[in-house]
Design a protein around this nucleic acid. Structure first.
Length: 587
RNA sequence: GCCUCAAUAGCUCAGUUGGAUAGAGCGUCCCCCUCCUAAGGGGAAGGCCGCAGGUUCGAUUCCUGCUUGGGGCACCA
C-alpha cells in the first residue's frame, strides 16, 4: 500500500513537472509513513514539505497542487492536506481488510521477503573461550546472534552461523593445568592451587573424567610439580609467571602425548557442554570453527605472509613481528608474533578473517561482547590491509545484562568461580523468557534482567502476555467444537466488511505492518523491534477480544472474526518463531 | 589521558533515514466478568526529551562544546 501511494505521488510530481510547477531536474524520494493518529488517515507523506523549497512555493500550496494532480485509485477513499503541508491518505476498507486473506493464504511464510537476494552472510557470535560453562553475559550474545541470523534468513539472506573455538593458546593451557592439579588432588596429593587457575567446581568434574580415562598414569608428586616454580602472588610472587611455570612443568613431566590427551579431555568436555547448552537454547551453528585448525593448517603463517608481502608488517630488533595497524587508524600497532616465536591470538584472528573472506562471503558480521569494542579498529585495519572493502565487515556490540530479583541485584563474580551460568538462568526462568528478554532491548544498551518478572505468569511479563494472546486464539478455536460449529474461513474472508469497528481496523493495520517490521529488524540487526511489535500486536488483540465476542451466534460475523483471530495467531506464531520462543496452544 | 555507548514520565524502556498534540508497560488512583481463559480490558494523573549553542520552514532525532553515568584501552587473551 505504501508503494502504491508512493507511485501515485510520483505520477503527480511528473504531472507538475510537465506543467512547469516543479523544475524538471528535481529529484525526490517519496516517503510514505504510517500515521500515529487516526484523524490523520492511514498513511501520510511529507513530500510537499520537502519539495517546497525547490518548488519555490509554500508547502500547503504545493500539497494542494499535488493532490489535484493525484491519479484516482480505488484503494484511496479520501485525501487531506493537514498541518504545515502533510498529505494524509485514507485507505478503503477493502484495502485494509485484504491483509487477513493474505495471512491466511501465506501462513508461516507471511512476512518473509527476498530483499537479501541470497547474499551470503557469515555471522560469528558467542565464541566464548572453552574454559568453562557459558555465563549469562554470553547468553545475551547467543540470543542476539541467533535471532539476527534467523531474521536475516527470513528476509532472504543466505546465513552461515559460526562459533570460533579458541582451542589453542595460553588460556587453554591454564585450563589443562588446572584440571591436572585437581586430578592430583583427587589422587591424594596436597598442593597449593594457583591463584590464577580455573577454580570452578566443573574443573574437578573434568579431573574425575581424566581419572577414569588415565587412571594413575598422570600422577606426579606435588613436590616434583612445584619444585623450582617461583612463588604465587599471595606469597609475594607474580601469578602470571607462577602459572606459566606450572604449565611448563605439566608439559615436561607428562610428556607431550599425555599432556595433549589431558588437554583434549578438558577441551572436548567443555565444548560439548557449551554446544549442548546452546542447542537447548535453540541456538545452532553451521560450523564450530577451530582456532587450532588455523595454526595447524598453516593459515596463520599464510595470512601473515600476505600482510608481510603487502608491507604491513615490520620486525623489531628483538625479533617480534608487528602489524602496522596505525596506518589504518588504530591507536597503536599490534604484535602478531612475539619474540619467543609464538604467534599471538590476534594473528589467529587475522587468519580467521582472511579465511572468511576467502570463502567468498558478501558480508562478515561479528557479534562481540561490549568489552571487546576496543578490537574494532584493529579488525577494520586487518580487513583493509588484506585488501577487502570495509563494507563487507560489520560489527555489533552486545552489552551485558544485569540480573535482578525484583529490585535486588544478583551479584556475579567470575573470579570466585560462582558466576551465574546460562544453564542456571534457563533452568530458572525457562528458555522462552530468556530468549525474549535478552533481545527485547537494544543490543548496545545495558539491560536490567528481572528474574522474578521473567518467571511471573501475568500480564506484566511480556513473554506470557504474547504467548497468552496466541493461546487465547487457539482456545477459541477449540471452543468451536463445543458449539458444534466449524470454522469456515471462506465465509469469513468473504465478509470481512462486517469487521467495521475501530478495534478491528487497528488490528488489521497492525497485522499489515508485520513484513515491514521484520525487514527493518533484520536489516538494522534490531530484534528488539520485532519483540516490541509482538507485544503491541498482542495488546491490540486483547483489547479487541475483551470488547467484542468472537463466538457470535451470527455465523457470518463469527467466521469473519475467526479469520481475523486466526490471522493474529499466525503472525504471533511467525514472530515468536523468529525469536526462538514457543507459541503454545494452551497455557 | 584517549576511545566508545548512553542520558526521554517516579521505575524499565520505545521513538529507523529531521515532521503534526513525544509513546508503551510497571507503579499510583478510579473502573469493568450472569459473557469465548480476569493469565484479560478501560480510564486518570504523571515530561524544560541532561545542559548550552549551531544547521532550517521545522530538532528528542543531525553537528559542536559541556555535565553525569556504563564499558574499554597502557606487547593480556
Amino acid at each position: 500500500m505504501k508503494e502504491h501511494i508512493a507511485e501515485l505521488i510520483g505520477v503527480a510530481i511528473d504531472t507538475l513537472k510537465q506543467q512547469g510547477v516543479l523544475p524538471t531536474d528535481l529529484t525526490a524520494r517519496v516517503m510514505v509513513e504510517n500515521t500515529k493518529d487516526k484523524s490523520h488517515g492511514d498513511f501520510a507523506t511529507n513530500i510537499a514539505l520537502m519539495l517546497a523549497k525547490q518548488a519555490r512555493c509554500a508547502p500547503r500550496d504545493l500539497a494542494q497542487k499535488l493532490v489535484e494532480a493525484l491519479p484516482k485509485s480505488d484503494s484511496v477513499t479520501q485525501v487531506d492536506i493537514a498541518g504545515p503541508g502533510f498529505i494524509n491518505f485514507f485507505a478503503s476498507s477493502e484495502t485494509i481488510n485484504a491483509v487477513v486473506g493474505q495471512i491466511l493464504a501465506q501462513k508461516e511464510s507471511y512476512g518473509l521477503s527476498q530483499v537479501g537476494a541470497k547474499q551470503r552472510v557469515q555471522v560469528e557470535f558467542v565464541s566464548a573461550n572453552p574454559t568453562g560453562p557459558l555465563h549469562v553475559g554470553h547468553g545475551r550474545g547467543a540470543a542476539y546472534g541467533a535471532t539476527i541470523s534467523d531474521l536475516l534468513a527470513a528476509v532472504g539472506f543466505d546465513v552461515y552461523r559460526e562459533y570460533y573455538v579458541n582451542d589453542a593458546g595460553r588460556q587453554m593451557d591454564i585450563l589443562a593445568t588446572s584440571v591436572w592439579l585437581r586430578y592430583l588432588e583427587l589422587s591424594g596429593e596436597r598442593l597449593e592451587f594457583p591463584s590464577n587457575g580455573y577454580k570452578g567446581e566443573y574443573i574437578r568434574e573434568i579431573a574425575r573424567k581424566v581419572q577414569d580415562q588415565f587412571g594413575q598414569a598422570l600422577i606426579k608428586s606435588a613436590k616434583d610439580v612445584f619444585d623450582g616454580v617461583s612463588a604465587d602472588e599471595p606469597k609475594g610472587g607474580d601469578k602470571e609467571i607462577h602459572i606459566d611455570e606450572l604449565i611448563a612443568k605439566a608439559k615436561s613431566l607428562l610428556g607431550i602425548v599425555n599432556y595433549e590427551g589431558l588437554f583434549d579431555i578438558a577441551l572436548n568436555d567443555i565444548r560439548w557442554d557449551i554446544e549442548d547448552d546452546l542447542a537447548e537454547f535453540g541456538v545452532r551453528y553451521q560450523k564450530w570453527f577451530s582456532e587450532r585448525s588455523l595454526t595447524r593448517g598453516g593459515d596463520v603463517e599464510k595470512s601473515l605472509k600476505l600482510l608481510q608481502d603487502a608491507g604491513h608488517i615490520y620486525e623489531q630488533e628483538d625479533g617480534a613481528l608487528w602489524f602496522r595497524s596505525t596506518a589504518f587508524g588504530d591507536d597503536k600497532d599490534r604484535c602478531v608474533r612475539r619474540e619467543n616465536g609464538m604467534t599471538t591470538y590476534f594473528a589467529s584472528d587475522i587468519a580467521y578473517m582472511n579465511n572468511k573472506f576467502e570463502r567468498g562471503f558478501d558480508k562478515v558480521l561479528y557479534v562481540f561482547g561490549a568489552d571487546h569494542h576496543g578490537y574494532l579498529p584493529r579488525m577494520k585495519a586487518v580487513c583493509q590491509a588484506l585488501g577487502y572493502p570495509l563494507e563487507k565487515l560489520d560489527f555489533r556490540l552486545v552489552q551485558f545484562a544485569i540480573l535482578y530479583r525484583g529490585t535486588e541485584r544478583v551479584q556475579m563474580s567470575t573470579r570466585s568461580g560462582s558466576f551465574v551460568t546460562l544453564r542456571e538462568l534457563r533452568d530458572e526462568v525457562g528458555n522462552d523468557a530468556a530468549r525474549f528478554f535478552y533481545v527485547s532491548r537494544k543490543s548496545d544498551q545495558h539491560m536490567d534482567f528481572d528474574l522474578d518478572l521473567a518467571k511471573s505468569q501475568s500480564k506484566d511479563n511480556p513473554v506470557y502476555y504474547i504467548q497468552y494472546a496466541h493461546a487465547r486464539v487457539c482456545s477459541v478455536m477449540r471452543k468451536l467444537a463445543e458449539h458444534q460449529w466449524q470454522f469456515d474461513a471462506a465465509l469469513g474472508l468473504a465478509n470481512l466488511d462486517r469487521l467495521d469497528s475501530d478495534y478491528e481496523k487497528n488490528l488489521m493495520t497492525a497485522l499489515a505492518r508485520y513484513p515491514e517490521i521484520l525487514e527493518n529488524a533484520a536489516l538494522n540487526y534490531e530484534p528488539h523491534a520485532l519483540a516490541l511489535y509482538l507485544k503491541d500486536l498482542s495488546s491490540e488483540f486483547h483489547t479487541w477480544y475483551n470488547a467484542l465476542k468472537v463466538l457470535e451466534e451470527d455465523e457470518v460475523l463469527r467466521n469473519a472474526r475467526l479469520t481475523l483471530s486466526d490471522a493474529v495467531r499466525q503472525v504471533l506464531a511467525n514472530g515468536l518463531g523468529l525469536l526462538g520462543v514457543q507459541a503454545p496452544e494452551e497455557m
